[in-house]
Simulated assay, not measured.
Amino acid sequence: MRVDEVSALLADKPSVLVPFASVEAACGFPSPAQDYQTNEIDLNEHLMPNRVASFLIRARGHSMTRAGIFDGDELIVDRSIRPEDGHVVVAVVDGDMTVKRLRVGADGVVLSAENRHHPDIVVAELSELHIWGVVTRSLHRVLRA
């Protein structure tokens, strides 16, 4: 999966309050006993708790589909989170930017694809690896326009 576009987020933008139904939507049969009271949530706080350290990128490709990241999705990336084994990260390996799952083990670093049709990237000892940030959210449309 490659990164198609990188966008900075402005820290001084006003809050975005959106009505939030305090019920869960059943994907099976709805419960008639649910209360439909609504509250509001701030999308900035909900999606990007550390807005100053966050940015958006657009993903291209199909190597991360099992992680819920699809071609054309916008990804929220937080640079303040320390990357750890198992995190999905935006990484630059020898000048090429990619989105993969970080695997750190005794044998070294592997950037794992989440699609069996795409190879993992084994980071060679002399390769240059820079982690831009940890992916915290994948935003994608249910219906593609």
Rank of each mutant, 00 (worst) to 15 (best):
E45A: 14
L56I: 05
V104N: 03
V110G: 00
N115W: 03
E40P: 00
H62R: 11
D42E: 08
R141V: 09
H118W: 13
E125N: 07
R103Q: 14
V135G: 02
L75C: 04
T136H: 04
L56V: 06
D85R: 09
V122I: 13
I131P: 04
G105P: 10
L143W: 07
S15Q: 14
D85W: 05
A21W: 05
P119H: 09
R103V: 10
K100Y: 07
D85N: 15
T38L: 07
R2C: 00
K13F: 08
S31I: 03
T98V: 05
G68M: 08
S31C: 13
G68I: 08
D78G: 06
C27L: 13
A59S: 15
I81C: 08
F70E: 13
E45D: 14
M64E: 04
M48Q: 10
H130R: 15
V109L: 04
I41R: 13
V52R: 14
G61H: 12
P19E: 12
L129M: 07
E5H: 08
E128R: 13
D107L: 09
V88F: 03
G105N: 12
V77Y: 01
Y36W: 11
P83M: 05
L17W: 15
E45Q: 15
G133D: 05
V92G: 09
P19H: 10
R137E: 11
V110Q: 03
V77A: 06
P119I: 01
R66Q: 14
G61I: 09
G108A: 08
P49Q: 06
V110R: 08
L43R: 11
S22F: 02
T136A: 07
P119Y: 00
R51Y: 02
R2W: 08
V18L: 09
L47S: 07
S31L: 09
R51M: 08
S22C: 14
D107P: 00
V142M: 05
I76K: 04
D71S: 13
R116Y: 01
A67T: 07
V104K: 15
S63K: 01
S22D: 14
L9A: 04
E84Q: 13
E74A: 13
E24S: 14
D73W: 00
T98S: 12
E24K: 13
H130P: 01
H118A: 10
S63V: 03
V110L: 00
M48P: 07
H117C: 03
V134E: 03
A106C: 00
A106M: 10
T136V: 14
R79Y: 00
D12H: 09
E114H: 03
V89D: 11
S138G: 15
M1W: 00
I69K: 02
L139P: 10
L47R: 06
R60D: 12
V123S: 04
A113I: 09
C27W: 09
I69V: 13
R66M: 08
M1L: 05
V16Y: 13
T98K: 04
V23D: 02
